[in-house]
């Protein structure tokens, strides 16, 4: 035995669970064969067991007496840096900002910049295709180069809505629509080709007065590639 052999034997192997899957395992968010396979692997894998131990310590450990002064000072420093953390997001009034998210502003700016670059590039490298978008980060879960404008329902309503309606997206051949509770439990979803869909009675009866619900639309093209996604829109019926 030597350090090299130990390092080789104890490093994460190709079958090891990703940090994300270990998290899902810890949160009981895996099921069926995925859960069984994850449990089987972890039972015999020192690397995954150690990772789980770190995760559990992060989630549950108290700050010790020795750490308290450092943590308090660190948190104070972090709060002074919140402007850097949140970027230069201006704190605008809700009414002014109700429908225009920062991500949309950023996306618009990025799109404008891309168009300028594209125009310049066209003259310099005329035969080259645009390839938009080309360099999305590998870990970005959602492509938001385009957003979908939602028409109705929006905000406070006097009665349960009969239908959901949104603006069309160029190139889209279908839309996935979903209605969720505020904890993001999905109540209902549908795939349609039009830019509106009637809410079934089974969903309408769940729109109780005062209960906030969310809805969202994802547009896709003929090859089922997501083209655009709306923000989550809330609505509720008020008495």
């Amino acid at each position: 035995m030597d350090d090299r052999i130990l390092t080789e034997a104890l490093s994460p192997g190709p079958d090891c669970l990703s940090i994300e899957d270990l998290g899902r395992l810890a949160d009981n968010a895996l099921s069926g064969e995925q859960l069984a396979a994850a449990r089987r692997h972890v039972a015999s894998c020192a690397s995954c067991q150690a990772e789980l131990a770190l995760l559990q310590r992060f989630a549950t450990s108290e700050i010790s007496q020795d750490e308290q002064a450092v943590v308090r000072a660190g948190v104070e420093q972090l709060r002074r840096r919140e402007r850097e953390i949140f970027g230069d997001v201006e704190r605008v009034r809700p009414a002014e900002n109700k429908r225009i998210g920062v991500s949309w502003i950023r996306a618009s700016a990025a799109l404008a910049a891309s168009l300028l670059l594209l125009a310049a590039g066209y003259y310099i490298f005329r035969p080259a295709p645009s390839g938009f978008p080309t360099d999305l980060p590998a870990d970005s879960g959602v492509v938001r180069s385009l957003t979908i404008g939602l028409v109705a329902p929006v905000g406070d309503l006097t009665a349960a809505p009969d239908r959901l309606q949104w603006h069309p997206v160029a190139g889209a051949t279908g839309y996935h629509v979903r209605v969720l509770e505020v904890d993001r439990h999905e109540l209902w979803s549908a795939d349609v080709t039009a830019t509106s869909v009637d809410l079934p009675t089974a969903v309408k009866v769940q729109v109780a007065p005062g209960k906030t619900l969310l809805w969202q639309v994802i547009a896709s093209d003929a090859s089922s590639r997501a083209l655009a996604e709306s923000a989550l829109q809330e609505f509720r019926v008020v008495r």
């Binding site: 605008v92 900002n97 998210g101 991500s103 505020v182 993001r184 969310l214 923000a231 989550l232 829109q233």
Partner: peptide, 18 residues
């Protein structure tokens, strides 16, 4: 925590979300 994330995701960029 999850309710706060849901509030954020309703309209990212709004004062309420921030």
């Amino acid at each position: 925590d999850e309710e706060l994330v849901a509030r954020y995701q309703i309209a990212p960029g709004s004062l309420r979300s921030r």
